[in-house]
Structures are given as structure tokens and as C-alpha cells.
């Protein structure tokens, strides 16, 4: 049991170090490059609705590769793209038609689970990224929840208080142990003297 705990403790320590170093590197590199945080050149997007099921489920996190310039003009039918529907809204849907117009290339998009194409065609300039095929299911639920008020309370504040409480108890026990030893020493001192 002791050996198991010893190895578990080492494993947890290793994970902690990897996380700390990795996150530190990623945050630092993201801040240096500017723009949206990315992981090794991929942006992680939380899927908030089921329009693209079964390609990716609601609540999953998908990795998309940001594109710009020429790449935006060379997308083809079947590609899953993330585009700006408005200034503060990103949508990830599949291209079902590519049209060349006077204003440039325009993509008609549709969610796999939708029964009709999107009402507005997407200008190539508004395409932000292309879906890479990498998905982590359910992680998006945690991400979304952690950004909500209840999520902050449940995932950050409550564990924090628990940790503080546990550390308080540990400290109190430590002091108790110290006092105990002190009294024991005082009792032993007259005897020796």
C-alpha cells in the first residue's frame, strides 16, 4: 500500500509539473503571438449546439486550424469551416456549394444535422478556420460550466474552500502535536534535573 501510494504520489507530481510547464509555455507563446489562444497552432472550440452531429457532439471540444489569405479561397465542398456569422458569433458548418461571384468566392454552408442550408452565404474573407478532425467529447461542457456563475462556484470556489479547510485542520493538528511535545518535554525536564 505504501509503495502504491508512493508511486501514485510521484505520478501526480509528474503530471503537475508537466501541466505547469506546458501551460506556462502555451500561455506565454499565445500571449507573444497575440490573437486567440491556440495549442500548437490549433484553436480549441467548444461546440454549443447539435447542428453538426454526428460529426461532433454537442459539448465536445474541437480543434480547428486558423487560415488566412489564399487558403480561404481554396476550400472545397465537404470541408467543415468555422466562419464569422457576426462580429461576436462564430459558426462551424460544412460547405455544400462553392460559388464564384463578382464579390469573390462565396460558400454555401449547412449543418449536417440541419435540414436546410444556412440562409446567408459565407464570403471567403469571413472564414476563420478549418476543422481538423480532432475532437474531445464532453470537455466543452466543463469549459462552458466553468465560465458560468454556478460553474465558478462549484469548480473553483468550493474546492478552494475545501482545500483551505483541510489545510487549516492540518495546521491545527500540527500545532496540537507541537504543544503535545512541549508539554511532554516540560514534564520530563524536572525529572532529569
Amino acid at each position: 500500500m505504501k509503495i502504491f501510494f508512493k508511486w501514485l504520489n510521484r505520478f501526480v507530481t509528474a503530471v503537475l509539473f508537466v501541466l505547469l510547464i506546458g501551460l506556462g509555455f502555451l500561455v506565454f507563446s499565445s500571449k507573444l503571438s497575440g490573437g486567440e489562444p491556440n495549442v500548437f497552432g490549433y484553436q480549441l472550440k467548444t461546440v454549443l449546439s447539435g447542428s453538426m452531429e454526428p460529426e461532433f457532439k454537442t459539448g465536445s471540444v474541437i480543434a480547428v486550424k486558423p487560415i488566412d489569405g489564399e487558403e480561404r479561397q481554396q476550400l472545397k465542398v465537404g470541408d467543415v469551416i468555422t466562419f464569422m456569422e457576426s462580429d461576436d458569433k462564430l459558426i462551424t458548418h460544412r460547405i455544400i456549394e462553392v460559388k464564384e461571384t463578382g464579390a469573390g468566392i462565396v460558400y454555401t454552408t449547412k449543418g449536417d444535422n440541419n435540414n436546410a442550408p444556412d440562409s446567408n452565404p459565407v464570403l471567403a474573407e469571413n472564414v476563420v478556420a478549418v476543422y481538423s478532425g480532432f475532437t474531445i467529447p464532453y470537455l466543452g461542457y466543463i469549459s462552458e460550466f466553468s465560465q458560468s456563475k454556478n460553474g465558478i462556484i462549484a469548480l473553483l470556489i468550493v474546492p478552494g474552500f475545501l482545500l483551505i479547510g483541510y489545510s487549516g485542520i492540518t495546521i491545527w493538528r500540527a500545532f496540537h502535536e507541537l504543544e503535545k511535545e512541549k508539554k511532554k518535554a516540560e514534564v520530563e525536564m524536572p525529572k532529569t534535573s
Binding site: L26, E36, P37, N38, V39, Q43, L44, K45, T46, V47, L48, S49, G50, S51, M52, F56, V61, I62, V64, T82, E85, K89, L90, I91, T92, H93, G111, N113, N114, D118, L139, G140, S143, E144
Partner: peptide, 10 residues
């Protein structure tokens, strides 16, 4: 590291 994409469902 994550941000939302609506993947508009309608």
C-alpha cells in the same frame, strides 16, 4: 484555451 462556436442549430 477554448472559445465557443455556435455551430448554429436551426
Amino acid at each position: 484555451f477554448t472559445s465557443g462556436t455556435s455551430a448554429d442549430f436551426f
